[in-house]
């Protein structure tokens, strides 16, 4: 009985706040002409101010989730180290790196670790020499992963869609070559990108947009059950 009441309460809160934010966002924009019964009611009831307040609260809550994320990260790796599960040594390195960066940043903030004017701080040096280098190396590897993926598509199974995908990809890559002998291919490449690729991309994006609308409406009318269980 108590659980049912809680579910009903959760549904009521979701529907009412969702509807207020929806109406507040639609009619709260000052660029509209503001005439009509519904915009007048929405503004008169203070939905616009309430919407802004709710959105600010959302932004603050989302910002706080970083702390929850850090706690989760530490707990996952700490659990692996203490249980000596596979890859525990890497988890130990992750934990020590975490503590090192936190320690460095705190030391910089407390002026224990000072930096001369014009020089980079220790935490910034760490970021630039470790994370950016690793990301750049991975970006280089990405090319090989993409080529491997294209090769694997035809290796796994030969379908009409697979053949079409590979042929289009090869045409576009060949058309991008800066050679005079492939001038005709460059025209085909431009047409492919301007007509079928653009149409297909718009089709996929329109499909996602329509599904997003339906999912949003399901949440607003209380048909989505994820917050009720």
């Amino acid at each position: 009985m108590r659980l049912r009441l809680l579910r009903a309460l959760a549904t009521a809160i979701t529907i009412s706040l969702g509807t207020i934010v929806f109406l507040g966002l639609i009619f709260g924009d000052s660029s509209g002409d503001g005439a009509g019964l519904l915009p007048g009611i929405v503004r008169g009831l203070g939905f616009v101010q309430l919407t802004n307040l709710l959105l600010q609260l959302t932004v603050i809550t989302i910002a706080l989730t970083v702390l929850i994320g850090v706690w989760n990260l530490v707990m996952v790796h700490f659990g692996r180290v203490t249980a000596r599960r596979g890859g525990w040594f890497y988890s130990l390195v992750a934990l020590l790196s975490f503590l090192l960066v936190i320690g460095l940043t705190l030391a910089e903030r407390a002026n224990i670790l000072t930096t001369a004017p014009g020089e980079r701080s220790a935490s910034m040096i760490l970021l630039e020499t470790v994370q950016i280098s690793i990301e750049s190396a991975l970006a280089g590897l990405l090319l090989f992963a993409l080529v491997y993926g294209a090769a694997r598509l035809m290796h796994r199974r030969v379908t009409w869609w697979g053949v079409l995908f590979t042929a289009a990809m090869l045409l576009i890559l060949l058309g991008a070559l800066p050679l005079d002998s492939v001038g005709g291919l460059a025209q085909i490449q431009r047409w492919l990108l301007a007509v079928p690729v653009s149409a297909g991309a718009r089709g996929i994006l329109l499909g996602i947009a329509l599904a997003t609308i339906v999912t949003g409406v399901r949440v607003l009318i209380g048909q989505d059950r994820s917050y009720r269980e």
């Binding site: 993926g149 294209a150 694997r152 598509l153 796994r156 995908f165 089709g203 996929i204 994006l205 499909g207 996602i208 329509l210 599904a211 997003t212 339906v214 999912t215």
Partner: peptide, 15 residues
């Protein structure tokens, strides 16, 4: 589409 065993396309994610 190229690398997965089976891909969901567009709005199929929401189904």
């Amino acid at each position: 589409f190229a690398m997965s065993e089976s891909a969901l396309i567009g709005e199929e994610i929401f189904a």
